[in-house]
Design a protein around this nucleic acid. Structure first.
Length: 711
DNA sequence: GGTCCGGTAAACAAAA
DNA sequence: TTTTTGTTTACCGGAC
């Protein structure tokens, strides 16, 4: 509640200037008044001097903010917009001086308080007042300094904007922190009173004091965070820092002493910090313009992003604009965080909650060589995917041209042809409406949204893929796969909320087979689904039910009672029985399939090389899954072998095409006459190389290998 | 048009 | 009591 008020104040146009500082003071003062008005002994013994100090600093702060605000409103007049950052430097120095002084004062207070007797009236004032003051006005600038800045008028619009925004962010942090701090104080007051009335001994009071001290330390850490923020400014070149002002390391918060509210506060504060830091990264040595940068840049800081930011956002997986919106609307949503897992490529660290994720993000994925390299790799991956997509499009066009297939777009879709989209659009054009595809009944009204979060280039076209899972296509529509998609699809399905074109049974089997012991619990299967497919991170009730349904329904899934409960295994014999035999009639198809698998290697090798070049071991499992390509390949071979076996031995078995491999049937187009009806085929099934029977549906079947290997 | 298959929804029961 | 797990049935749409 207090935080809300703080936010409102911040968002209020006219209140911006003094909303943070004065607002904080007022809040504190009012809080103090309340304490007194209640007839309770004020635990926070803020003396007149302190109040005067607060007011004074408030007055000092206001002109600067007003100035910045006015500059912003004036459209950041470039009149004085020389790039000279001298004024900013001055301001920065002043701020740092202030902070130093406050820290020193705080430390002194702490020392004093530590020596003081646990008597109620003695301990708290020393502990609290300095902290609150320090936290409220870490960046106070004296009127003289302010005037100096104003006289110089050397701030460029961008600098002003940056400074103003960051100032606001810091103020918000301070405000929130202060509010929480006051809450803590009030609680402690109550505790003290209760203890006093109950005749508690100083021991407990000491405990309370200890808590106070701990909290104070946390506040100090917040200051350090702010300093880091300033450092990030320095990185941006917007500020220069004094050589003698070392950056304080971000110390971990004292565990076990962070109450829920503090965690909440911490979360918000670190969120802002993260955003700022990310922005700093953007301007630092890295000229990263893709996901890694744009992903976590909130709207607040979007203004200070480089001119390419918006463009980058469009090209990257996440657009800054959308991200910022989502951040505003869903404070806990973060493109790098989902389902309790850090989505940083290759990380997948489990973070229980958003605050812990933010901490993790700040600690593990700070601006360093590794993160830089990862971002670069991600860029390369995206670029490679883009290139591959372009190639495939070209190839498709050539194929269509060769087959004299007049564009089926009128019938299929107006959207650009893509491996994915074309598949969806093909035969079942009637159903191909993008909106109708992806969604489970649970989300009928939100058809496209999930897909929009997909990977950059693929996203647009892939939107149309979402629904295909149910549809099956006959072999004749299959077209030789372009080498492309293996790694692509893996990454794609992991990031894009596009429904994989595989049956639940196939996915379940894959999950089980990928497990070390070839057996998984239901929950582990769930986890595999969510881990491997972004699509299954939503509508859990639906697909989980389907998973259970499939497990129970299909004989190929065998439930085994284990020591630790029931696990599910795959009866390959039964599963093979399910396989379609369509492929059986076409040995050549199998050949093609095999050849198509060969594509995997080069692509993955390239990706791996790229990663190795950047020394990014993390990528191995998470985003690319390259390391597991071997497994994937072997799985494909197994599939192929199975299909071959069927081809050789079960030709008579003509159950409607369902073999995993069936999808792979290579290029029927070449072997079968192309009739008008089939003409659509190429379009719809551009990629059909490897497949499990169930994977046959509307997609290129190279996906399966990828998916199988994802793990 | 019938059949098969997969996806989805739902009800129900047992176990945790 | 709630949640998870497991089973079963029904329905629908797509492919054959």
């Amino acid at each position: 509640m207090m935080q809300e008020s703080g936010t409102e104040t911040k968002n209020n146009g006219s209140a911006i200037q003094n909303g943070s500082s004065s607002g904080n003071h007022l809040l504190e003062c009012s809080s103090l008044r309340e304490g007194r008005s209640n007839g309770e002994t004020p635990a926070v013994d803020v003396g007149p001097a302190d109040l005067a100090h607060i007011q004074q600093q408030q007055q000092q702060m206001t002109p600067l903010i007003q100035y910045f605000t006015s500059k912003q409103r004036e459209g950041m007049d470039d009149r004085a917009g020389s790039e000279n950052t001298k004024a900013l430097q001055v301001a920065r120095q002043l701020l740092l001086q202030q902070q130093q002084q406050q820290q020193q004062q705080q430390q002194q207070q702490q020392q004093v308080s530590g020596l003081k007797s646990p008597k109620r009236n003695d301990k708290q004032p020393a502990l609290q007042v300095p902290v609150s003051v320090a936290m409220m006005t870490p960046q106070v600038i004296t009127p003289q300094q302010m005037q100096q800045i104003l006289q110089q008028q050397v701030l460029s619009p961008q600098q002003l904007q940056v400074l103003l925004q960051q100032q606001q962010a810091l103020m918000l942090q301070q405000q929130q922190l202060q509010e929480f701090y006051k809450k803590q104080q009030e609680q402690l007051q109550l505790q003290l009173l209760q203890q006093q009335h109950a005749g508690k001994q100083p021991k407990e009071q000491q405990q309370v004091a200890t808590q106070q001290l701990a909290f104070q330390q946390q506040l100090l850490q917040m200051q350090q965070l702010q300093q880091q923020h300033l450092l990030s400014l320095q990185r941006q070149g917007l500020l220069t820092i004094q050589p003698g002002q070392p950056a304080l390391p971000l110390q971990p918060l004292a565990q076990g002493m962070i109450p829920t509210e503090l965690q909440q506060l911490w979360k918000e504060v670190t969120s802002a910090h993260t955003a700022e830091e990310t922005t700093g990264n953007n301007h630092s040595s890295l000229d990263l313009t893709t996901t890694c940068v744009s992903s976590s840049v909130p709207s607040k800081t979007s203004l200070i992003m480089n001119p390419h930011a918006s463009t980058n956002g469009q090209l990257s997986v996440h657009t800054p604009k959308r991200e910022s919106l989502s951040h505003e609307e869903h404070p806990h949503s973060h493109p790098l965080y989902g389902h309790g897992v850090c989505k940083w490529p290759g990380c997948e660290a489990v973070c229980e909650d958003f605050p812990s994720f933010l901490k993790h993000l700040n600690s593990e994925h700070a601006l360093d060589d590794r993160s830089t390299a990862q971002c670069r790799v991600q860029m390369q991956v995206v670029q490679q995917l883009e290139l591959q997509l372009a190639k495939d499009k070209e190839r498709l066009q050539a194929m269509m041209t060769h087959l004299h297939v007049k564009s089926t777009e009128p019938k299929a879709a107006p959207q650009p042809l893509n491996l994915v989209s074309s598949v969806t659009l093909s035969k079942s054009a009637s159903e191909a409406s993008p909106q109708s595809l992806p969604h489970t009944p649970t989300t009928p009204t939100t058809p496209i949204t999930p897909v929009t979060q997909g990977p950059s280039v693929i996203t647009t076209t892939s939107m149309h893929t979402v629904g295909p899972i149910r549809r099956r296509y006959s072999d004749k529509y299959n077209v030789p796969i372009s080498s492309a998609d293996i790694a692509q699809n893996q990454e794609f399905y992991k990031n894009a909320e596009v429904r994989p074109p595989f049956t639940y049974a196939s996915l379940i089997r894959q999950a089980i087979l990928e497990s070390p012991e070839k057996q998984l619990t239901l929950n582990e299967i769930y986890n595999w689904f969510t881990r491997m497919f972004a699509y299954f991170r939503r509508n859990a009730a639906t697909w989980k039910n389907a998973v259970r349904h499939n497990l129970s329904l299909h004989k190929c899934f065998v439930r085994v009672e284990n020591v630790k409960g029931a696990v599910w295994t795959v009866d390959e014999v039964e599963f093979q029985k399910r396989r379609p035999q369509k492929i059986s009639g076409n040995p050549s198809l199998i050949k093609n399939m095999q050849s198509s698998h060969a594509y995997c290697t080069p692509l993955n090798a390239a990706l791996q090389a790229s990663m190795a070049e950047n020394s990014i071991p993390l990528y191995t499992t998470a985003s690319m899954g390259n390391p597991t390509l071997g497994n994937l390949a072997s799985a494909i071979r197994e599939e192929l072998n199975g299909a071959m076996e069927h081809t050789n031995s079960n030709e008579s078995d003509s159950s409607p095409g369902r073999s995993p491999m069936q999808a792979m049937h290579p290029v029927h187009v070449k072997e079968e006459p192309v009739d008008p009806e089939e003409a659509e085929g190429p379009l719809s099934l551009v990629t059909t190389a490897n497949h499990s029977p169930d994977f046959d549906h509307d997609r290129d079947y190279e996906d399966e290998p990828v998916n199988e290997d994802m793990e």
